[in-house]
């Protein structure tokens, strides 16, 4: 089964929390039961006048609702003819979220990073600069930020050190709710035994280095304690932005 912990904090500078988290876990027992699955989503909204918090919420909800209605239906009924692949389910669910934000909250946008864990496999979909990590003996960043600064690093124009100080750190190249038919990143990897999945917004990774995240996470046996320790440390570092994270562990066989 899953063991997970979350943190969801405004931080010390912002007035409101524009992030949003969704966690869904499942269980089925029986002769031909499907393996359990979990859906984990973080979103970080943007846009003035409370639009940001509404955008992240609307996107995360719409996305999760779509995934549950498609994937969840298959999960309860077995694999049907012409069934969609998990990539197709995740991508069309993001497109739905994108439409919902464009239609209802024009002018706003949100990041969205989600992990669907099923069988022994993790399926990621991602837009923006929230991140997914696998944290075990080492820490490994799974997602690739869709940000101007990341693009400049990739092109070799600035170093990763400079990136941390770059003025337009929060300029995104892509976000949910900005243009029709957005392209998302998709990736699937097997769950590695003994590792934890971490999803977080830039309020966490922007102030804590990868090695700090690794060290702090490793200090706590319970994912909830680890999540709280991470946000505590981010607040100590000034808490300039909303801090949201989900830490997931898989125990036993799926």
């Amino acid at each position: 089964m899953f063991r997970f912990g979350i943190t969801y904090e405004t931080g010390r500078v912002r007035q409101s929390n524009e992030d949003c988290l969704v966690v869904i876990t499942s269980l089925q027992q029986g002769d031909t039961a499907s393996p359990y699955y979990g859906l984990f989503v973080v979103a970080d909204g943007m846009g003035g006048h409370e639009q940001g918090e509404r955008a992240s919420q609307l996107a995360a909800q719409t996305f999760a609702r779509e995934v549950i209605s498609r994937f969840g239906a298959q999960w309860l009924g077995g694999v049907s003819e012409n069934s969609e692949s998990i990539q197709e389910i995740l991508e069309s669910s993001i497109l739905r979220a994108n439409q919902a934000v464009m239609l209802n909250l024009p002018g706003s946008g949100t990041t969205l990073t989600a992990a669907l864990v099923f069988s022994r496999q993790i399926f990621f979909t991602h837009i923006g600069d929230s991140r997914a990590y696998l944290v075990g003996k080492e820490i490994r960043q799974i997602t690739h930020d869709h940000s101007l600064v990341q693009r400049l690093v990739d092109q070799g124009h600035i170093s990763s050190e400079e990136a941390g100080r770059f003025a337009q750190r929060n300029v995104l190249l892509k976000a949910v709710g900005q243009v029709e038919g957005i392209e998302t990143d998709f990736l699937t990897i097997p769950w590695e035994k003994g590792s934890r999945l971490l999803l977080c917004t830039d309020g966490l990774w922007g102030v804590l280095s990868d090695s700090e995240i690794l060290r702090i996470t490793g200090n706590y046996e319970s994912p909830q304690d680890a999540a709280m320790a991470l946000s505590r440390q981010a607040n100590i570092m000034g808490g300039p932005d909303n801090i949201s994270a989900i830490i997931v562990e898989m125990t036993g066989e799926p």
């Binding site: 943007m46 846009g47 003035g48 940001g52 101007l148 337009q168 929060n170 300029v171 892509k174 900005q178």
Partner: peptide
């Protein structure tokens, strides 16, 4: 500047130095 709402990311016509002001 420095607020996520103001994304200049899709601007496209401007040179890199202009992003630095």
């Amino acid at each position: 500047p420095d607020r996520k709402g103001t994304m200049i990311g899709t601007e496209g016509y401007s040179p890199p130095e202009q992003y630095r002001g």
